[in-house]
Write a protein that binds this DNA or RNA. Structure first.
Lengths: 204, 204
DNA sequence: TACTTGTCCTGTCATGTCGTCAGCTTACCG
DNA sequence: CGGTAAGCTGACGACATGACAGGACAAGTA
């Protein structure tokens, strides 16, 4: 449905859109600006995408494909003792850097999902589900061994913890206003994650 | 700088803008629609606000003023035993309903802050600070009594916990996709909050 | 090289929003 | 009831949107 040259322009438009999203408010991103930056015309943009939102969805789907690597940070991991602490640290680290690399598009996905747009909600679920799923499994297993609180819902706890991580990740610039040092962020997130999953304080 | 009639139209425009934000994507909110809904003309809108964003900032500031009531949910509260559990429950409950009542504007504030707009960041800090501040104090006090982990940063932990609550609150519709029941949400958030503040599982 | 073919790009146009100004309407007061 | 100032709006130039028809370009053929 598209030739070689066409694919290239299409991809260039997507790249320029991504840059645009990183540098100006979503509300102000215009087709004409994206096209100009890509060295082409608005008409070309409309040949490949229905509108800005449509193109953003493409970007989001691309990102959600890349997010599958996040699952590895949460599947088949131990949550006991010092190895458990390392699991928490690595998960926080991986998630924060993924967010830093894709902050612009993730912002828009979050907004779309919060506004009730099913297409964005679905993408968001896919990205987060890659972590919450395995994490909930881990909690469930700890629970069945009597090592975690029996009254909690693994899915709800996992979802909430991942929400915490993504929310902090998305507001990293603003986070300093809490009065916390930037270097404090990661270890304290790992602390809360470990605590939430296991119900116990980490042994570092 | 403004008469009685003027105040009324201005307020009506703000109200209509709020409704608009609740019913359509922020990106698609147009001055002309707000004006029409308020039974007036675009020119009138521009008499009171520089643009949509300017008006949104007004709404956000109004909301941040109302948010001061949130502070009470976190100041001078006990975090020990069953009373501590009630503190957590009430904080979760209050925050979730505040978010539900103001979800539209809070969404936009979050976006603006994430995009690096200082004006929105400031408002967001003010709203969240009303809770994170007292909460960090509580954690600090527990810490000095040896009742909480000495290695954590109260500010970072409090900020992260509040981020968790607000993030979940902002995506309440999407939250069911985790596979968790809606009724599970509040108790499990309270669990994580109590756990994060005290370092111990709640005694319910 | 010249020609053909199908893909790809863009000039142009109708439509609609933005943001401003001059001038009209309304409310209030002496 | 007339004057005055506050408040509102029609109208306008500028710009973005989205659609189409036709021009430009790469690649294959002779």
């Amino acid at each position: 449905m598209a030739g070689r040259r066409g694919q290239a322009t299409r991809q260039k438009l997507l790249t320029c859109l991504d840059e645009m999203l990183s540098s100006s408010p979503y509300r102000d991103v215009r087709v004409i600006d994206v096209a100009r930056r890509a060295g082409t015309s608005p008409a070309t943009f409309y040949q490949y995408f229905p509108d800005v939102e449509g193109a953003v969805l493409e970007l989001a789907e691309e990102m959600s494909r890349e997010s599958s690597s996040l699952s590895e940070l949460a599947t088949d991991r131990t949550w006991t003792g010092k190895a458990g602490w390392r699991t928490a640290e690595e998960l926080v680290d991986g998630l924060l850097s993924f967010w830093r690399e894709n902050d612009a598009i993730l912002r828009v996905v979050d907004l779309g999902a919060a506004e009730g747009d099913k297409r964005f909600s679905k993408i968001r679920s896919k990205v987060l589900g890659g972590i919450t799923g395995p994490l909930a499994d881990s909690i469930g297993k700890l629970q069945s061994k009597g090592k975690a609180d029996p009254d909690i819902s693994p899915a709800a706890v996992a979802g909430s913890l991942v929400s915490m991580l993504t929310s902090v990740a998305g507001q990293q610039k603003a986070a300093q206003s809490w009065g916390a040092k930037k270097s404090d962020l990661k270890p304290n997130l790992a602390y809360l994650l470990y605590l939430g999953v296991t119900g116990r304080r980490p042994s570092r």
